[in-house]
């Protein structure tokens, strides 16, 4: 038991940190109906910017800096798909590719940055919590605060007029236009906000593991989608607060299952295969289910044919 608890704590910390990306996809994928494939690159961008600013001696500043970098990346993705005639999936892929170069450039040409010796938001928090003897929980506290603030912001934001307009854009853009709202604007705002969360998520992960490499965000979009879809199966409420809570829960469950699987000697490199399979099952499951009556009929008919053929002999 004593060595299970830290395991659970690690899963919770990592789950919370990655849940910020899942919340970003909740906004872009579930609400705005845009599959933002720049997520991987944007996550890395947040990590790289966060690490670089922390390394320069400004751990607190690293957070707004990473979020701002995310906003910029989201703006470019949104601009390409709304104003430049680039298909929305392609816009994400293009930005993702471009970010690879940009991220390495920010790390001054290196693909790895170590921030072992530099102050981070986590070491700052550790110093504060040491006073009350809770310094072991520094990562958890930072992650909880970040997720709490982002979730609260998202909850309030989606109830504002701009939030409603963003939801309507993903639902029925015709209706948005006839309500005298420009869906281009809502798409841009939505993707900027979502990518700010993704940037923050990357920033926190980089600082919690005290290093960042260029691959830190690879596969993030699939992992986050898997978490999002897991959360959706656990909490099916229509109420916004529950949906957001479900999203965070999904991220945590994903991490927990992954951590347990590691304990049972699943090699770590299997993570991405597993998350891909989860996404496939979650998306194609309902589709296959809807096709099932037809498949069943076909089998029945084939069976009946065989039977009549047999009788004919």
């Amino acid at each position: 038991m004593s060595n299970l608890l830290p395991l659970f704590q690690t899963a919770l910390e990592l789950g919370l940190i990655s849940s910020l990306t899942v919340l970003a996809l909740f906004l872009s994928y579930s609400m705005l109906n845009v599959c933002d494939l720049s997520t991987d690159g944007c996550f890395t961008l947040g990590a790289v910017v966060g690490a670089t600013v922390a390394l320069a001696g400004h751990p607190w500043l690293s957070i707004p800096a990473a979020m701002l970098a995310g906003v910029l990346s989201g703006f470019v993705t949104a601009f390409l798909q709304t104003k430049m005639g680039v298909d929305s999936l392609l816009a994400g892929i293009i930005v993702n590719t471009a970010l690879y170069s940009i991220n390495i450039a920010i790390m001054s040409g290196s693909s790895l940055v170590n921030i072992n010796k530099s102050e981070t938001v986590f070491t700052k928090m550790q110093a504060w919590l040491a006073g009350i003897g809770l310094d072991k929980f520094n990562k958890l506290v930072v992650a909880l605060i970040a997720v709490g603030l982002v979730a609260l912001f998202l909850y309030l934001f989606l109830k504002t007029k701009i939030g409603l307009a963003i939801r309507a854009t993903g639902n029925n853009p015709d209706m948005v236009r006839s309500s005298s709202i420009n869906p281009v604007m809502t798409t841009i705002v939505g993707l900027c906000v979502a990518n700010a969360f993704t940037g923050l998520s990357g920033c926190l992960l980089a600082q919690s593991q005290k290093s960042v490499n260029i691959d830190i965000g690879s596969g993030m979009v699939t992992i986050a989608l898997a978490s999002l879809l897991i959360g959706r199966t656990f909490i099916r409420s229509r109420r916004m607060g529950f949906k957001i809570a479900g999203t965070i829960l999904g991220a945590f469950i994903f991490r927990l299952v992954y951590t347990v699987a590691l304990r049972f000697h699943m090699p770590a490199y299997m993570l991405k295969l597993v998350s891909s399979i989860i996404v496939i099952i979650a998306i194609s499951g309902p589709y296959i289910k809807s096709k099932f009556p037809m498949i069943a009929r076909r089998f029945k008919r084939a069976g009946a044919k065989k039977q009549t053929a047999g009788e004919g002999k």
């Binding site: 109830k159 504002t160 007029k161 409603l164 939801r167 309507a168 029925n172 209706m175 709202i181």
Partner: peptide
């Protein structure tokens, strides 16, 4: 089906069409 957003409530649909208040205001 063309004039309304199906996943949003009656109130939210109407509020968007009415367009009262600023962007950051709630209903």
């Amino acid at each position: 089906l063309r004039g309304t957003a199906p996943d949003m409530s009656i109130e939210e649909n109407l509020a968007l069409a009415a367009g009262h208040g600023g962007w950051l205001s709630r209903i």
